[in-house]
């Protein structure tokens, strides 16, 4: 409960803070629009040359774009900016102030910085997903909807835990501020079903950088091609990875000695 209130406070702070930079809303709107147009145009070019991409139909690919935009919007709304700030705090030594606060430090560094305008991406993702669902129509039943929601929650948990693990590495390698940008470029790979990649890259995108679990797997659930072993695997990982991330975080905090002291 306390943490929900904390998140709410940071959300409000984020909004107040961003209202100073209203140009950024316009830029975000432009950026979301351009991103969407690019994704659609990309699909347009691809599907002007072929009917299926590695077995995926246009409407199914549209669903992938929706999930991609939605998950990207959610992580960039809270998790990524917060962790980015956390890493900068380590570098500057200002993390001390966070650690001395009387709440769980992991929760605090994960929600402290909000990029409000990323809500635009969340909305765009939902709209695209809605259009894709309408196009897919009758093929989506209760099973598919349930598989989708479960897989999406699992995927979001996996991505958060993974990002936390990455950010925690900053306790040892201070100049890692690029690492989340690199994650973003890896995340780009999720714009396409990971089945089209050569096997080695598919493994990387499933196990090393779990983009596949966050985007391809939920979409597979939605279009009814998700096999139960994959779903069970995703759920298992969604339980295991947060625990690992938590342990690693605690280990990292113990290692931290401050930069200013």
């Amino acid at each position: 409960m306390t943490y929900l209130r904390l998140l709410w406070i940071h959300l409000r702070l984020g909004i107040l803070n961003e209202l100073q930079y209203r140009t950024n809303l316009v830029l975000q709107l432009i950026q979301s629009a351009v991103g969407l147009v690019t994704a659609l145009l990309g699909l347009g070019i691809v599907f002007s040359k072929t009917d299926t991409l590695g077995g995926w139909l246009p409407a199914e690919m549209l669903a992938i774009v929706g999930v991609y935009t939605l998950v990207s919007g959610l992580t960039q709304l809270v998790v990524r900016p917060s962790l980015q700030r956390f890493m900068e705090d380590i570098r500057l030594g200002t993390l001390d102030f966070t650690l001395t606060k009387p709440v769980d430090a992991q929760a605090l560094v994960s929600m402290r910085q909000i990029e409000v305008w990323k809500l635009v991406d969340v909305v765009v993702g939902l709209v695209v997903l809605g259009v894709a669902v309408t196009q897919l129509g009758a093929s989506i039943g209760a099973t598919e909807a349930l598989a989708f929601v479960v897989a999406l929650l699992a995927g979001a948990t996996i991505i958060y835990s993974f990002l936390l693990i990455l950010a925690t590495c900053a306790f040892w390698w201070v100049r890692l501020d690029n690492i989340l940008n690199i994650f973003q470029s890896m995340y780009e790979a999720g714009r396409w079903p990971i089945g089209i990649y050569p096997p080695w890259l598919r493994y990387v995108l499933t196990f090393l950088v779990p983009v596949g679990f966050a985007i391809t797997v939920p979409t597979e659930g939605l279009v009814g091609r998700l096999t139960s072993p994959t779903l069970v695997g995703a759920i298992a990982l969604a339980i295991a990875l947060p625990l690992i991330a938590r342990a690693f975080w605690k280990f990292g905090v113990r290692h931290y000695s401050g930069a200013s002291a």
Binding site: V46, K49, T50, D51, T52, L53, G54, W173, R175, L176, N178, I179, N181, I182, S185, M186, E188, A189, R191, W192, I196, Y197, P198, L201
Partner: peptide
């Protein structure tokens, strides 16, 4: 470390589009 990270991002992007278009070429 930062150098290695940059390279990953640099390399991945062309590989993505290469995979997409190779898949298209194969299906055609």
């Amino acid at each position: 470390g930062a150098l290695v990270i940059w390279l990953t991002g640099l390399i991945l992007e062309p590989v993505i589009f290469l995979s997409v278009w190779a898949a298209v070429a194969r299906s055609q």
